[in-house]
Amino acid sequence: MMPTPRDTAFLLRQGKLIGLADETGWSVAADPISDAAVERLLQLHQHTPGSLPLTVLIDKADHLGMYVQKVPEVAWDIVEFAENPLLVWYEQGKNLSPVLLNQQATVAVRRVLSTEVQRLINSFGRGLLTLPFEAASLPPAAAEQTAGTYGTPATSLRKPRIMRLGFNGEIEFIRK
């Protein structure tokens, strides 16, 4: 039986790590303001080859302002109308654990397209900090660190496009 968004949100609020499946594959999710959970996620990131940078998942473009210090005007439309997974790097993050903000000046944000994961984020009340693997299964080291899983992996995984967006709207594609 799949856990409910409410049950999973409870685990996240307790500082637990969760295996999360969406349109891009599996990742490990944590509460982005829990210092202990973010530390565990950073340690997992250091010990898991092939993992991508930590990413904040949001359920709608309106939540960009919660995690980005200065949102360029063009970002709202880019994020809102993306029909495929799109990860955007912004210059400065906010409302994240100081453990993370002290380690990196930029913040990666992706609006999740999976309605199932959107419901979880909505139930949780804020975005999720994730360590994405873009894989059909969680690596064993990551699976050992999670208190459960949530979401259904897509039948065909879609790697997100990755772009960097500067304060003044400068755009640089890292992965198309």
Results as ranks from 00 to 15, higher is better:
residue 148 G to I: 13
residue 12 L to I: 05
residue 86 L to N: 01
residue 137 S to G: 03
residue 59 D to S: 15
residue 170 E to H: 11
residue 126 R to K: 15
residue 73 E to H: 06
residue 59 D to K: 12
residue 72 P to S: 07
residue 137 S to V: 11
residue 153 P to A: 13
residue 52 L to W: 15
residue 144 E to M: 09
residue 81 F to P: 01
residue 71 V to L: 07
residue 48 T to V: 09
residue 120 L to R: 06
residue 63 H to C: 05
residue 44 L to T: 12
residue 21 A to N: 10
residue 140 P to W: 12
residue 7 D to R: 08
residue 155 T to K: 14
residue 95 N to Q: 10
residue 19 G to Q: 12
residue 117 V to P: 00
residue 33 I to G: 08
residue 4 T to C: 00
residue 10 F to E: 02
residue 133 F to L: 04
residue 134 E to S: 06
residue 10 F to Q: 01
residue 53 P to E: 06
residue 167 F to W: 14
residue 62 D to V: 11
residue 72 P to W: 11
residue 26 W to C: 09
residue 162 I to T: 12
residue 50 G to W: 09
residue 50 G to Y: 09
residue 1 M to D: 05
residue 158 R to I: 14
residue 95 N to H: 11
residue 25 G to T: 11
residue 131 L to M: 08
residue 122 N to W: 10
residue 10 F to I: 02
residue 54 L to R: 02
residue 154 A to K: 09
residue 138 L to P: 05
residue 49 P to M: 03
residue 142 A to P: 00
residue 131 L to R: 05
residue 148 G to F: 10
residue 81 F to D: 00
residue 54 L to C: 05
residue 172 E to S: 01
residue 1 M to H: 08
residue 125 G to P: 02
residue 142 A to W: 04
residue 140 P to F: 12
residue 142 A to C: 02
residue 157 L to V: 10
residue 106 T to K: 09
residue 111 R to I: 07
residue 172 E to M: 01
residue 157 L to W: 14
residue 43 Q to P: 00
residue 149 T to F: 10
residue 168 N to C: 06
residue 153 P to E: 06
residue 94 K to C: 10
residue 157 L to T: 13
residue 150 Y to E: 02
residue 165 L to K: 01
residue 136 A to T: 14
residue 1 M to Y: 06
residue 42 L to T: 04
residue 169 G to Y: 10
residue 136 A to L: 11
residue 142 A to N: 00
residue 85 P to R: 10
residue 76 W to G: 00
residue 44 L to W: 14
residue 164 R to I: 09
residue 109 V to Y: 14
residue 144 E to Q: 14
residue 135 A to I: 05
residue 89 W to Y: 14
residue 78 I to R: 13
residue 67 Y to S: 04
residue 173 F to A: 01
residue 94 K to V: 13
residue 105 A to N: 14
residue 8 T to A: 03
residue 166 G to M: 10
residue 172 E to F: 00
residue 120 L to E: 03
residue 40 R to Q: 14
residue 39 E to Y: 04
residue 158 R to P: 02
residue 4 T to Q: 03
residue 106 T to Q: 08
residue 148 G to P: 01
residue 45 H to F: 07
residue 115 T to C: 01
residue 12 L to D: 10
residue 131 L to V: 12
residue 27 S to W: 11
residue 39 E to C: 03
residue 16 K to L: 06
residue 172 E to G: 00
residue 56 V to S: 04
residue 40 R to W: 05
residue 42 L to V: 12
residue 103 Q to I: 08
residue 128 L to N: 03
residue 59 D to Y: 11
residue 140 P to T: 06
residue 149 T to P: 00
residue 171 I to C: 03
residue 75 A to R: 09
residue 74 V to G: 00
residue 70 K to M: 08
residue 66 M to T: 07
residue 47 H to R: 15
residue 38 V to W: 09
residue 7 D to Y: 04
residue 154 A to T: 13
residue 159 K to P: 01
